[in-house]
């Protein structure tokens, strides 16, 4: 049964991939201009002198949580639509990728940490470089939930007890709710106590994965004070052309 679903999923992914390729082949080839290089916008940026032509906002996110809760799975699912069934412990992988957030181009930098760190001096150092944190536990594992408090304390300690540092609490493995150990009520309470969002995800089924990163990045952006132009969520559903005009609009405001 598992095999059948695996084959089906692979097939579906293949079709998706081919379809995407076809789409790009048919519609994107004409535009020689690279999609995200907008000379006009760049020029206006340069003129206003706020940003050098190529520099852009980078949002630095750190994934924390005990081993095996799905930090890597969430990261890879978010960035590459991929889920790996077998568990490979992470050491400290880091990724950067281009994101268009509310019609505005930026980069996300994700540091995917190991569950148990032994050298804490280095860890403090890279926690310090983080601007937003995703604190993950598994709803099937009470211990991983308990540990989230400790991770938050470490973050706050490094951030000089600045409790406004953007954190999202994530309960992963939501596809297995029938076996849940950590009640939804408990999760909600903790998020309230922390003053942050709680999101329940399934890295496996790609449920709420985008929401986690979207919520966090918006908050980070707000903190950086770069959010006068709010094009809203509907930007994500609009066409490429519209997106580009969105970027333009924002840059002229800048």
């Amino acid at each position: 049964m598992d095999k059948v679903s695996h084959v089906l999923r692979n097939g579906w992914n293949w079709i998706k991939l081919k379809f995407l390729a076809l789409w790009h082949f048919l519609f994107r080839r004409k535009s020689d201009e690279p999609e995200f290089y907008d000379p006009e916008a760049m020029a206006s940026k340069k003129a206003s002198g706020t940003l050098p032509p190529q520099q852009q906002v980078v949002h630095k996110v750190i994934m924390v949580g005990t081993g095996g809760v799905g930090k890597s799975a969430l990261t890879l699912q978010f960035m590459y639509d991929e889920f790996v069934e077998e568990y490979e412990p992470t050491k400290a992988d880091s990724y950067r990728k281009k994101v268009v957030l509310d019609g505005e181009e930026c980069s996300i930098d994700i540091l995917d940490t190991a569950g148990q760190e032994d050298y804490s001096a280095i860890r403090d150092n890279y926690y310090r470089s983080g601007e937003g944190f995703i604190c993950v536990f598994s709803i099937l594992d009470m211990e991983s939930f308990e540990a989230t408090n400790e991770f938050r304390e470490q973050i706050l300690r490094v951030k000089n007890s600045d409790s406004s540092v953007p954190i999202v609490l994530v309960g992963n493995k939501g596809d297995m709710r029938d076996q849940r150990v950590v009640s939804a009520e408990l999760c909600r309470q903790r998020a309230e106590q922390w003053g942050c969002h709680y999101v329940e995800t399934s890295a496996k089924r790609r449920e709420n994965v985008d929401k986690v990163f979207y919520d966090l990045m918006r908050e980070m952006k707000r903190r950086k004070g770069g959010s006068q132009a709010q094009t809203g969520i509907d930007a994500s559903a609009s066409s490429g052309r519209k997106k580009r005009s969105g970027i333009k609009k924002h840059c002229t405001i800048l």
Binding site: F36, Q54, Q55, Q56, V58, K91, A92, D93, S94, R96, K98, L111, T113, Y119, I122, N125, Y126, S129
Partner: peptide
């Protein structure tokens, strides 16, 4: 640690 090397190689020009 890889994270340490990561910080060493900060770069704003890379677009991919």
């Amino acid at each position: 640690a890889a994270a340490e090397v990561r910080m060493l190689l900060e770069d704003d020009n890379h677009r991919s």
